[in-house]
Simulated assay, not measured.
Amino acid sequence: MLQSSREVLASEKINRYGRLSYEVLDGMVDWVRVIDRKGTIIYANKSMEKALGKGIVGEKCYSVIGKGCACERCIAYATVNTGEIVEKEEIIGDRIYSVKSSPVKDLEGNIYAAVEVFRDVTRERKLEQEIIKKNEKMSEDLSFARTIQKKILPQKGIQGPLKIDYLYFPSEMLSGDVFDIYKIDEDHMGIYISDVVGHGITASIMTMFVRQAMKSIKYEYVEPGAAITELHKRFLDLNLDTEKYFTIFYGVLDLKDYSFKYVNGGHNCIPLLINNNIELLEAKGYPITCLFEQIKYEEKQIKLNKGDKILFYTDGVIETRNQAGELFGIERLIEICQNNKDNLLKHIEKGVNNFKYKDLDDDFALLSIELI
């Protein structure tokens, strides 16, 4: 008698827990259905019945979602036969559902059905598509901007008495490095290299300011110190925060006697004068920043002879690291310049590529001019 009472109690618990499970499923917003081995629906919760009709129990699983035959990839069939949880996406009407199929077992542990949970992911998928389209449009815009940024660089080859060559590799789609060579008047040429803090879109926009400002200033100031002082004044007019700044090295070549007068606006990559020896073109000066109301720059002057080269570069070159974390450094750059007077930039590029162990973290620019 005691054994019989225990069996009744156990049976009642099973029934009670079963009712409780169905109540939980009926309270879910997601659709839930149970499908037997033959693909017949043996249970559907209230959310699914309300959406598809109360007569779906007893129907084939595929017919109630608008299909005339079984799915090519039936996840319920896969679950019943393998016991694995399987997922896929299903389009029903104008909605997209993420469907997860899990096994249902009897008291002996045998799989006799699959329970499918349908979650409406239409909004998420539409947002994903919108993001993809916007990213594609942004990539197109960035690619166009990258093309323009490269097109506005000076032409390689002969310009006046100078032979010009350069390498230019942005670390991202757009670069914060910019350089230019231009004629100021019949007797003078201007040459500068600039490195904007950071890289990417923000830095590239700042390079446009540098380029346009220098194009304008060149007609007003032949002396490089006065030109960069004026550049600083125009930068202050932008009213940017202190985190935005750039460095610049600017020189003016006198075409009558080939004297080269230069200033350094905080550019820590000191250009190299290359002939029989290698000389650093050092000069004192602050970066172009809003931290200072007025800045004056120290001017230095050298005389160039035929065959002399000046190598301008940005910190993406000397701050490249190897696997041990060592910097490429100015010493390695000077060593390459000493041993490779011909095809200099190719040898520097090869040296950097052999030294680094991952992609560049910063923009990379090298500009070489040679008096011919």
Rank of each mutant, 00 (worst) to 15 (best):
I152P: 07
I330W: 01
L253Y: 07
I158L: 14
L142F: 11
G351D: 00
A226V: 15
K306N: 08
K13P: 13
R332C: 05
F169L: 12
L231Y: 07
S63P: 00
D36K: 00
L255G: 07
E331L: 07
H347A: 06
G93M: 08
A203Y: 03
V121Q: 07
R119S: 14
N339P: 05
I41F: 10
L253C: 10
G190M: 06
S171E: 00
T207H: 11
Y250P: 08
R19C: 05
F260R: 02
S47H: 07
Q294C: 02
V210F: 01
I193T: 14
I248G: 02
I217V: 11
S102A: 15
G325T: 06
R146H: 09
Y258F: 15
K309S: 14
Y17W: 08
N305S: 12
G190Y: 04
F312D: 09
G351A: 14
I217D: 08
V178N: 11
S171I: 02
D363S: 05
I158P: 02
E223Q: 08
I274L: 10
S11W: 00
M208H: 06
E90A: 04
V121A: 13
A145I: 02
D254W: 03
L253W: 11
S21P: 02
D120G: 13
Q294M: 05
E172R: 15
K233D: 11
Q301D: 03
L142V: 01
Q155L: 11
L20D: 05
N277W: 02
I191Q: 04
E243F: 00
V252C: 13
E326I: 01
D36R: 00
I205K: 08
V64T: 12
I184D: 00
V196M: 04
V197K: 10
V121S: 09
G93L: 09
Y97D: 00
G329Y: 03
D187Q: 07
M214F: 06
K60Y: 13
K150L: 05
V197E: 07
D185R: 01
L281E: 09
K126I: 15
Q149D: 07
G83L: 04
D185N: 14
N277E: 14
R211C: 01
T289R: 00
R321H: 10
I14H: 03
G58I: 03
E319M: 02
W31Y: 13
R321W: 01
V197R: 06
F179Y: 14
V57I: 14
I302M: 01
G109V: 13
E220H: 14
N268H: 09
A283P: 13
